[in-house]
Design a protein around this nucleic acid. Structure first.
Length: 271
DNA sequence: CTTTGCACCTGTTGGC
DNA sequence: TGCCAACAGGTGCAAA
């Protein structure tokens, strides 16, 4: 479910509940996430108080004095801050019970999410070490995208969803950014001009920043830490709009499959 | 090396 | 009403 804007919205929502508060208890009800939760996880975190809540790509990093919990929400995961004593429901797989009467609760029906612990620099963790730049950092710009697209035959949509090139661009925002940049998702990456790469990099930055500003996109079940959906769905130009009229020119939006995922574009606006 | 497709898992939706 | 196929905000990994 969550792409970068939803993960960033979650980060902002859980930060104040965690910072400086001791973790009184760690409850893992189901260890069978994408990777099994390490047996020692509970005892590493119990008694620690978070120093920082950060995000790298779609990973949330809960930094404690002794190490870092690395959390991924997968396709259907969410993190919420609830009152301690709120009874867990189905698919509520783990809790951090916090000093002061609140609990951070992880809910994930599909269990594609994950939870790791590292006592080393999380940037060196195998899941993080080969990631590309953050799209909202200065390391990501048109020149980066242009260089990365040279001699690549893959479709440009697949390229921008490749986390080695740039992180955080998922299925919704890939289609949306390509619409804004007026580029066909199916075009070979190597056929982008320098100017088109610059336009696409800019479109990616804008669409992600705008989505963060209104709390991300809720399609089905995404909610932020307070249980509130994101409202970016109303700003979508093409995603999940196959057959509907383009909001710019009225042409029917097309839906195609790329890399076993749905892609949406306007055949008139996008070349 | 790049590219492609599968796998993991549960829930919802739409057609017959 | 029931059944079954298709599809869903991700991504590591194996195979081509």
């Amino acid at each position: 479910m969550p792409e970068l804007p939803e993960v960033e919205t979650t980060r902002r929502g859980i930060e104040s509940a965690l910072l400086g508060r001791r973790v009184l208890d760690v409850i893992v009800r189901d260890r069978r996430l994408r990777w099994p939760v390490e047996p020692g996880f509970e005892r590493r975190v119990r008694g620690e108080a978070a120093l920082a809540v950060e995000r790298r790509a779609k990973y949330l990093l809960l930094r404690f004095p002794a190490g870092t919990a690395i959390v991924h929400l997968g396709m259907s995961g969410s993190l919420r801050v609830l009152g301690a004593g709120t009874p867990p429901l189905i698919h509520d797989h783990w809790d951090l019970v916090l000093e002061g009467g609140q609990v951070l609760r992880f809910h994930d029906p599909r269990r594609f999410g994950s939870l790791h612990w590292t006592s080393a620099d999380p940037a060196l963790h195998p899941l993080l070490q080969d990631l590309g730049p953050e799209p909202l950092s200065t390391a990501f710009d048109g020149e980066h995208l242009f260089r990365a697209s040279r001699r690549r035959r893959v479709a440009i949509k697949l390229l921008i969803m490749n986390s080695h090139i740039v992180v955080g661009v998922g299925n919704i925002y890939a289609s949306e950014a390509l619409f804004r940049a007026r580029l066909r998702p199916t075009r070979a990456a190597q056929r982008l001009s320098r100017a088109q790469a610059a336009a696409l990099a800019q479109a990616i930055r804008e669409v992600l920043a705008e989505a963060i500003a209104i709390g991300g996109t809720t399609l089905r079940d995404y909610v932020n830490a307070d249980g509130v959906p994101g409202y970016f769905r109303q700003q979508l130009f093409v995603y999940e709009r196959g057959g509907a009229p383009c909001r710019v020119c009225g042409t029917a939006i097309r839906q195609v499959t790329q890399g076993q995922r749905s892609t949406y574009y306007c055949p008139s606006c996008q070349d």
